[in-house]
Amino acid sequence: MCDTCGCNVTPGNEHLISGEAVEVLRSLLHENDHQANHNRSHFKKHQVLAINLMSSPGSGKTALLEATIDALGDKFKIGVVEGDLETENDAERIRNKGVPAVQISTGSACHLDAHMVHDALHQIKLDDLDILFIENVGNLVCPASFDLGQHRNITLLSVTEGDDKPAKYPVIFRAADLMLLTKTDLLPYLDDFEPANAERYLRELANPAVMISLSAKNGSGISEWTAWLESELSHYRSEHKKL
């Protein structure tokens, strides 16, 4: 028992402890949320739709972006912020497609936060863009808790993972505005992944998000995905018209 760690406080004597109580009622991530709102006002000023891509490592986020750039052509101007623990590899893949990309190397940090994204925004010309993709660090846990200032969350689930991933990682799948089933060209070789199950597990989280199945490799589903992007961009811009 001591006065240092609080082990002498019990439910019985708790009310006897005096001190000035201050009501705070703020998010634990108040500073991050404040920065995220600041990022959102940057996006609004430049009329840029910001999309946060979240998934496990290796589920095909960068391949999806490459296929998206090819499919959209000159239709929309795209920029990419890449989050990885190390290397410039993903940003280079995007730049090879002629699209501006900023790499954030997080070191050992397992997620992007609003401050990291803000630093990256200063290296990218938002005025030139319609859509900014933020490719989060491959991780189905931590990225879900940090607002980056994005307008839409997309969670990718590759068919080489289990179809019960939404049940195992509910926080990140509940946050999704769209769930993308990726690598569907591999479905004929996998007898244990059922797209209908993945959708059922998503609904168990009370999430009405659209699910689109696609393959960056053979192009199936890509037109449905780009149509979703187009519709979200026009929806965003009609909601956030410059006054």
Partner: peptide, 29 residues
Amino acid sequence: INSMRCAHCGEWRTQLISGDEMLLRTIEL
């Protein structure tokens, strides 16, 4: 956290009332 259906009628379209809080409520000085 991974089964948010209505316990009464089984509907999956429910709204969260509580359970996603991460709040600094009070401090004592």
